[in-house]
Amino acid sequence: MSSQTPNAKTASALPPFKHVDILQTPTSLLYANLQPVLLLSILLFSFKTLVQDPVNTLLGLAPTVTILQGLYCALCLPSTNQAPTTTSKPGQKKKPAKPAQDVWAKVVPALLSLLLVLVLSTPILYIIVILFGAPLTTHQPHTILLAFHLALLTTPQLYYAHGLEAQTWYKLVSLQLPVDELLGMSLGACTGAWIGAIPIPLDWDREWQKWPVTIVVGLYVGAVVGKLLGGYLFKGWRIKLS
């Protein structure tokens, strides 16, 4: 109750955070809707090999998912320095000039976001996965690849859209930003992975219960569900941690 006063005070001091809308061009709309389908079908088609040989399958999937996520950033999202107001008017005509420069303005941040996934998110998420009880002495390739896939689905879109500013990220991780497609996807992926850990201890003696198959499945399904929920049903909601 009482904590609202200072929050409101400081919130006004900082730039107001709005939820991120995806770009309204036909290409981006098409791809934004295609991406969940692609992610789920990848999972569906590789499930059998994932169970048989998790390491090689996850390794093999990594480039594809990286490209999918990179395309999503470049095609559908407004990048950090793009004012969201310019994109929210679909009728407005853009300058047709300098298309090449325009493309680079999107590709470079997308590549940077993917680089950050590799050097920043993956190590952090690897530590978090270990903290949650992942095996410490065995299954290292499994866990590292799991962390990489987790990072791929949760973070590049956030880097691309929100940049690297500390204040923004404090708000992001403490879930103070309004829910949108991007945050929904990240949260969904985390929640899905969390739920995915639950069936592991059951004594069903199934092949698919092995590390980290259930978590990967939960992660992908969660990301897609979270993206859809965040993009449509809960758009603009705020989660209050405290």
Partner: peptide
Amino acid sequence: VLMLASSLGQN
């Protein structure tokens, strides 16, 4: 982890 996240959100 959630307490960490919440702490990071303190003003």
